[in-house]
């Protein structure tokens, strides 16, 4: 098992290196640079050259890449060209805001999705199955920014029971902060809920059709114990998709963040793109990619712990 974990960690190194090259190359390929945004077009060319030199943009591309990578390896994510703030602190604040939504949204979506999926499978073809399948498909297919607007219209505007946007005042009490979480968390949980419930329904149906379920009945096992067998068998594929879904949530949803005016990682990246803020953009993407890879390694390990056939 330890060898398995070690190998997975080793695989992560080339993946992240590749990701860093792709990110850097894509940012370079985009036309224009930060000087186009920072200084007016009628400014003399020398001003732009001084700025380029200051940011190291006049160096050869590969040098720029290695400087960036070297700094990253030392834990230095660079400095934002636009705000002059360290990228690390900007990212930390945006990512913690995103996590504040992503963790409860994942928890809600995964739990609800798993329960609905299992129930739909057990009552296959019945009205409960049709109802839950309808909910799941709606969750996946409705645009979630639209759902967000509708929720705001209902709960904030019409009923006036929940705040429409923002994180609440800095010095607000816990309850107030929690109230601000409710609508964005529900909005974000819809897609994971739908995806997980469809997947769980399909895997449970597949498991129920297998002979060992008959064999468990044939040895008189309690319903609870049979459910445990089903859950353990359905867990590996479900965990894989949960890992991916949680990764997407961490990237932040620019649309949902916009609807709720939530300063998360999606907004940070969006801003960096429009400002041509290369250090913010590339370091943020790389950190998110790193987290994504880490989550997937964790999922791989969990899967292998549950299903010994995956320990290769």
């Amino acid at each position: 098992m330890w060898r398995f974990i070690g190998r997975r960690l080793l695989y992560a190194v080339p993946i992240l290196l590749g990701v860093s090259i792709i990110i850097f190359a894509l940012v370079q390929l985009a036309p224009g640079d930060v000087t186009d945004i920072l200084i007016p077009p009628e400014a003399p060319k020398e001003v732009a050259d001084i700025l380029r030199h200051k940011f190291g943009l006049d160096r050869p591309v590969y040098e720029q890449y290695f400087i960036w990578l070297g700094n990253l390896l030392q834990g230095d994510l660079g400095v934002s060209i636009f705000t002059n703030q360290p990228v690390g602190s900007e990212l930390a604040s945006a990512l913690s805001n995103t996590l504040m939504l992503a963790i409860p949204a994942a928890f809600l979506g995964f739990t609800l999705g798993a329960v609905l999926g299992v129930l739909a499978a057990f009552f296959r073809g019945g009205w409960l199955d049709k109802l839950f399948s309808g909910i799941a498909i709606a969750g996946v297919s409705l645009p979630h920014y639209w759902v967000g607007i509708v929720l705001v219209a209902i709960f904030a505007v019409t009923l006036n029971v929940l705040p429409a946007q923002g994180m609440g005042p800095e010095d607000g009490d816990v309850w107030d902060s929690l109230r601000h979480l409710i609508l964005p968390v529900i909005t974000l949980s819809l897609i994971p809920m739908g995806v997980i419930s469809r997947l769980v329904r399909a895997s449970v149906l597949e498991i129920l059709s297998q002979e060992f379920i008959s064999a468990l009945s044939a040895k008189g096992m309690a319903r609870r114990r049979i459910l445990f067998h089903i859950v353990k068998n359905a867990a590996p594929p479900t965990l894989a998709v949960m890992g991916l879904q949680f990764g997407y949530l961490l990237g932040g949803s620019i649309l949902v963040e916009t609807v709720y005016n939530w300063p998360g990682s999606g907004g940070l990246m969006n801003l960096a793109i429009f400002r041509r803020d290369v250090p913010v953009l590339s370091s943020t993407i790389l950190v998110l990619a790193g987290i994504f890879v880490a989550i997937n390694i964790l999922v791989d390990v969990l899967q292998a712990l549950i299903d010994p056939r995956l320990r290769r």
Partner: peptide, 25 residues
């Protein structure tokens, strides 16, 4: 009640033990 007979009174063996045994236990 049937579950109290299945196992201690009546037991069954299957054609394909690979599929009749749970792979993750």
């Amino acid at each position: 009640e049937l579950d109290r007979l299945r196992g201690p009174e009546i037991a069954m063996i299957f054609q394909e033990p690979m599929t009749a045994l749970d792979p993750v236990f």
